[in-house]
Design a protein around this nucleic acid. Structure first.
Length: 444
RNA sequence: GUGGGCGUAGCUCAGUCGGUUAGAGCGCCAGACUGUGGAUCUGGAGGUUGGGGGUUCAAGUCCCCUCGCCCACCCCA
């Protein structure tokens, strides 16, 4: 038995945490600049809150927790680990009905899915959610999409794509094609794979799922090639696809408004792709849906979202429209790491190395003084250790500076200050240490 | 849940037609450099070969079971 974290989960060691925290700061920065405020909720939710919101497939992937005591021994279950952050938000809106609307919150916490892990897929991963509750305006949807774009840009991505569609258009599309009600979900799933398997693949999938003949031909005839699709082409196709359906036409009107707002938010057309086939898996979406992709990644989407106008009411809350999106932090970081080689930042800026215990008091005083000035300073915790060992510790941890406190220096009231990368060392008067180091750190 | 691949030192791996004390590189620890890191050299620690059973004179190697990891599907961030 090897001590390992559970399947599909990971330890985040300090160098990894440096990368995560830097990415998190970027993401939070964008969210907060748009006026979204942080929210956290428990890892656990009552099972009845979680079940029946995502779809049958996903319900099976919810981690369930046995009841405590006798009932648990009989296999009874009443709690589950949260599967995403949207349902917990909807539950919060039902719980705290006096929150000012529109309620704009972001939430960055782990979620759990009882899946079999794979590349880019974990059983525990962090989602970065931004949502706006309490308005049906397409302005809110446009803002969410703009945030998706701005976040990816701020993280350094240049070739991302935002795929957009609308659930009601999709619905009307299926109706107009004459897809049987019982295979409709399967048909939607089939066309959602267009990007991955192409038109021929979709045709096979449709067949497999029970959509054939006229209906299949109608669907395939409407699908546009899976590269970036212009809004004009989408509108033309969607108008035909939805036929006379009122709901479909209403959806199309919303998409027109959304597209126009996106222009005002400054989202460049090149990153937008309007895709009649894009579906999203979760059941609770009711309006516009979005998906963020890094085309060459081969990891699936890095983010997605959409409007879910009935979810809060479904949980017994008020009838509040809502929209939002979320990023998968691990995927973003994995792709970012591929793009650029960022040396992991050291947590300490300076190590105070003491020659021996006779100067330990001086070393501790120097470290304290550096910390008081706001520098991240640590002292080597074994004062009898040789200087060589203390230096290699600093080197291994990537600490950029070492201050040597020794008897010779003490006699002359100075310390040695060395920058490891350049190997430059100079002697500075003890009284000037903090100022000298602060200046050097500022230049890094 | 379905299908496939792989488990040898902390990490990456080697280990022949089964053959006797299971190896290397990296990392780690110590020393060479008697107040200074990354380089080089020397030495050292570290393995119930994932676990259990079987075949055999003999199993890291072959067979079965089990556990774990990886990849793909389903689905998704």
């Amino acid at each position: 038995m090897k001590p390992q974290p559970p399947k599909g989960t990971r330890d985040y060691l300090p160098p990894e945490m440096a990368r995560r925290e830097s990415a998190l700061a970027t993401v939070k920065g964008v969210f907060e600049r748009y006026g979204y405020a942080p929210l956290e909720t428990p890892a656990l939710e009552r099972l009845d809150v979680l079940i029946g919101k995502y779809g049958e497939e996903s319900d099976r992937l919810i981690f369930r927790i046995l009841k405590r005591g006798e009932r648990g021994k009989r296999g009874e279950v009443d709690l589950g680990l949260r599967y995403d952050l949207t349902v917990p938000l909807a539950r919060v809106m039902a719980t705290h009905q006096d929150l000012p609307k529109p309620f704009k919150r972001y939430q960055i916490q782990p979620v759990w899915r009882a899946e079999r892990p794979q590349r880019g897929r974990f059983r525990e991963f962090f989602q970065c959610d931004v949502d706006c509750v309490g308005t049906a305006s397409m302005l809110a949807d446009a803002e969410i999409v703009a945030i998706l774009h701005e976040t990816l840009t701020a993280l350094g991505f240049r070739r991302h794509r935002l795929s957009l569609n609308h659930r009601r258009i999709l619905s009307a599309f299926m109706d107009a094609a004459g897809v049987r009600a019982d295979v409709r979900t399967a048909a939607i799933r089939a066309i959602d794979k267009l990007d991955k398997i192409g038109k021929e693949g979709v045709e096979k999938e449709l067949e497999k799922s029970g959509t054939t003949g006229e209906a299949a031909r109608h669907i395939l005839g409407m699908l546009l090639e899976p590269e970036t699709v212009s809004f004009e082409a989408y509108v033309a196709a969607a108008e035909k696809a939805v036929g006379a359906s009122d709901a479909g036409r209403a959806g199309l009107e919303e998409m027109k408004q959304l597209a126009s707002y996106l222009g005002h938010f400054g989202v460049p057309e090149e990153v937008l792709s309007f895709d009649l086939h894009m579906a999203r898996g979760l059941d609770y979406y009711t309006g516009p849906i979005y998906e963020a992709l890094i085309p060459e990644a081969g990891l699936g989407s890095v983010g997605g979202g959409g409007r879910y106008d009935f979810l809060i009411a479904q949980l017994g809350g008020p009838d509040l429209p809502a929209t939002g999106a979320s990023f998968g932090l691990e995927r973003l970081i994995a792709l970012k790491a591929e793009q650029e080689e960022v040396p992991p930042a050291a947590y300490s800026q300076v190590l105070v190395a003491v020659y021996d215990e006779t100067v330990l008091a001086e070393g501790l005083a120097a470290a304290a003084e550096l910390r008081a000035a706001g520098l991240k300073a640590e002292i080597y915790l074994e004062p009898q250790a040789k200087l060589g060992k203390q230096f290699s510790y600093a080197d291994a941890k990537g600490i950029p500076f070492v201050v040597v406190v020794g008897p010779e220096e003490l006699a002359r009231d100075v310390v040695q200050l060395k920058e490891l990368a350049s190997r430059e060392q100079r002697e500075v008067p003890r009284a000037e240490l903090t100022a000298a180091l602060a200046a050097l750190v500022a230049k890094l």
